Computed example of a mutant assay.
Amino acid sequence: MNLTTEDKRLLQELCDRHSVSYDKVIQLLKTVNAYELKDRRTGIYDALREIITSDLH
């Protein structure tokens, strides 16, 4: 996943505005990206759920 500096700034601004954890959004995007090219995406929902419910701020 390649976000430009401007993309990261905009994402941070949106996360701040909506009280969403920037780190969690980045982890979610990385996870979706990792599963994107797989033939089977078994386990993606568990991986996403784990990120969402983690204490990562």
Rank of each mutant, 00 (worst) to 15 (best):
R41D: 09
K8V: 07
D55K: 10
T4P: 06
R40T: 14
T42L: 08
E50M: 07
T5K: 15
E36M: 09
D7T: 08
V20H: 04
V25G: 00
G43Y: 02
M1R: 10
S19I: 10
Y35K: 05
D23I: 03
T4Y: 07
E36T: 11
Y22N: 01
E6A: 12
T42I: 12
S21W: 07
E13W: 08
E50V: 06
E50L: 05
Y22V: 04
T31C: 02
L28Q: 03
L3M: 14
R9T: 12
M1S: 13
V32N: 06
L14K: 13
I51F: 02
A47P: 03
Y45P: 05
Y22I: 00
V25T: 06
V25W: 03
V25D: 00
L14H: 08
N33P: 00
R40D: 12
D46F: 07
R17S: 10
D23A: 12
Y35S: 01
H18N: 15
R17D: 09
N33I: 04
T42W: 03
R40Y: 10
R41N: 12
C15M: 07
V32Q: 07
E36D: 11
S21T: 08
I26H: 03
Q27N: 09
S19N: 13
E50G: 01
Q27V: 00
Y35D: 04
V20E: 04
Y22A: 02
V20C: 06
N33L: 00
E36H: 12
A47M: 01
L14D: 06
N2T: 13
M1F: 12
I26R: 01
R40F: 10
E6Y: 10
T53Q: 11
N33G: 00
E50N: 14
D55V: 04
C15P: 05
L3N: 08
V32D: 02
K8A: 13
L29H: 03
D7N: 14
H18M: 07
A34S: 15
